[in-house]
Design a binder for these strands. Sequence first.
DNA 1: ATTGTTAATGATAATCATTATCATTAAGGT
DNA 2: ACCTTAATGATAATGATTATCATTAACAAT
Lengths: 153, 153
Amino acid sequence: MKNSDKFISGLVKNFKDKGFRLTAPRKAILDLLVNTNEHPSVEEICFDVHKSYPSIGITTVYRTLDLLVSWGLVHKFDFGEGKARYELIEHPKGIGHHHHLICTSCKKIINYTDFIDKEFNYIPKVETRLSKKYNFKIQNHLIEFYGVCDNCM
Amino acid sequence: MKNSDKFISGLVKNFKDKGFRLTAPRKAILDLLVNTNEHPSVEEICFDVHKSYPSIGITTVYRTLDLLVSWGLVHKFDFGEGKARYELIEHPKGIGHHHHLICTSCKKIINYTDFIDKEFNYIPKVETRLSKKYNFKIQNHLIEFYGVCDNCM
DNA sequence: ATTGTTAATGATAATCATTATCATTAAGGT
DNA sequence: ACCTTAATGATAATGATTATCATTAACAAT
């Protein structure tokens, strides 16, 4: 069994366990999310899914993503483009968890994944503390640094 | 001289130094930003500024905020409401720098400001490292934890 | 396997934040 | 006081997201 199939099974299970129906458009959307390394927008997801499931409607893409986001399985990004971008939080073969440097001038986004040890230790400790204090089940985090890039200085 | 006046002077200087004109609507918007503890939306800013400067147009609010964001003086937040919210990055009397816990189910936002020592040490170290590595001048950061709150569990 | 219930879909229209346009106004140097 | 030109604000245009609703199809019960 491919690694990505395992992921899809897990996602599918989520739908069933929560009493939602497992439909063809939902499967097609999940399949796309598992097989991309990007942060696709709704429009891009719709365009791509259209290849395997031509009758896909954009409304369904919005609705399916909303579900996945509310279950903490997908993260919804806003990079200031006026539209959202989406990414599976646990990704079978993606670029993996990453943080961003965002240039406030030209909007360029730099992904970085080369965390130092300090960074690995920091997050779990803070998460444990906050979870307890606020009785909040943390599923994901977003760390972004804003500033001025090379070209814009 | 009031603390908030000092801040406004600094902001004003920014406009002059960069060759932008210091106009009444811009002054009114700065004044509002300095005197709020909220994360106001464009609509809210427009409404409030209208009291002191009734002819304010919403376009000017957008334009002024864009300038301040591009200079790294104001942070533009997206809390998933379909509209942006804004806050002065260095605030004379605000709630101060804070991070967020965001419930992906009901969208509730919890601010927390009680950082532990580890958290104080972590950020500057990472910023120094990233600044050097990517030749990027960091002005601000955003740390958000996503999950499920008390009520939604 | 067939049926019945009802959630899910997708075309379309509606909404709403943001951006573009452009004639008019006013900042700030001369 | 005048001039140049950036800034303004009313309005229209755009574009992402959401609401509506008749139709379709999942899947539990038979």
